[in-house]
Amino acid sequence: MEFFLQLLVNGLSLGFLYAVSALGFVMIFKSSSVLNFAHGELLAIGAFMFLVLSAWAKLPIILAFAITMIGSFALGFVVERLFLRPLIGEALIEVIMLTVGLAIMFKGIMLFIFGGDIHDYPKFLPEGLSMEWGAIQIPSVYVATFVIGILFLIIFGLFFKYSSQGIYMRSVADNQPAALSLGVHVKRVFALSWAIAALVCAMSGIVLGIINGVNVHELSSIGLKVFPVVILGGLDSIGGAIIGGVIIGLLETFTGGYISTSLREVIPYIVLVIILMVRPYGLFGLVEIERV
């Protein structure tokens, strides 16, 4: 029973991590319908930026964090401007391959600079955050992740639901010509969504880095893990991404705990195929409103 509970806790924490790292992906997809294969690399770039600033340049943690956020925001902006803008209106496969190409490029650069080793952040989380429940332990990083994740979700939920800019972003995703006719700056919306997404990615990259250490291969493979998570939740809903993340996290830890560790890595994809067969738009995706 204790084993079960520990797995449950681990699964929930892992799932929450997945959910947080899927946010940036959903953001880009929601506004510009681009399937971003460079997602894992964006996570890694953010994590490494923070590594350089905090561990190598020895800046205070808060300052390093702030600079990382600004830097990745700018990076997202530049990436959209240089690479994705020329492709607006091109076929899906070309946009996908472009992000794949970007992923390979980013990965190459990062391997060149940082190598394939695991790097660690200096310890800065207070130990007091960790929780204990009889035999079950929740380390402080997970608690911190949970708090940060919830905070982020609320901020972005509010942003999309109530702020004007959030509404403009949703309107572009909904009906681009109509948004254009009302003077919504569609290109600015795309750029903004990439910038915000890169920022969120950096954020989740840092969190992942705190937990597992910073490693290029590790982080870029998490970028692929995002697909089952978002498909399960429906590609366009942020709440769905959370639930998808938690389901995948639980599935992985339970499969790893009770069946076999090797199956653990593929189980998300097997579930993904089944879900796609049964409910093509995910468990919580929007059902298309069709008018005839």
């Binding site: 509404i167 403009y168 949703r170 948004a179 919504v184 929007l286 409103i289």
Partner: peptide
């Protein structure tokens, strides 16, 4: 050309 997934008021706000 309405925005299907936005509410009426959100549509107006666009």
């Amino acid at each position: 050309q309405e925005f299907k997934y936005l509410t009426v008021e959100e549509n107006l706000r666009v």
